[in-house]
Design a protein around this nucleic acid. Structure first.
Lengths: 68, 68
DNA sequence: ACGCAATTGGGTAATTCGGGGC
DNA sequence: CGTGTCCGAATTACCCAATTGC
């Protein structure tokens, strides 16, 4: 059987991420804008976030960041 | 090597596309109506979408647009 | 021919976007 | 510097009944 790289990533809406972090959805948008959080865009421009990334951040797992 | 456009393309149903973008199937229909997403029609009027186009859009790759 | 999930269409709430200011 | 809030405009989600797919 083929080893599938799981192209199917669960996505979260801005409000869902905001609820998880207990912040305003606008704040989540700022995180995305500043590159702290990666995001997918709908064809209408609305953002969707990777559940795995959000979960990792919630778990306190440091995300890969640019060495500075 | 030549870049060959695949003649027979895998087709996705509205709900499948909706799941990939984390939106409502009706929203995908709206994208098709507005020309943001190309679609094939069944003989009964139901829409089918090109998997390659959907994947490209998910990847953030801008689709080739018709020059006018 | 029948059943059932999915899709279609319209209409109306709820979110989200972007910018600006505190 | 980061966050919450206000605003208008745009996008998306949920409601219905009828049609289509398999």
């Amino acid at each position: 059987m083929t080893v599938k790289p799981a192209p199917n990533e669960n996505l979260l809406t801005p409000s869902e991420v905001a609820t998880l972090f207990r912040v305003d959805p606008k704040t989540v948008t700022r995180w995305a804008k500043s590159g702290k959080l990666s995001s997918i865009r709908t064809l209408g421009g609305h953002r969707r976030y990777l559940e795995s990334e959000v979960q990792a951040l919630l778990s306190g797992v440091p995300q890969p960041r640019h060495a500075h």
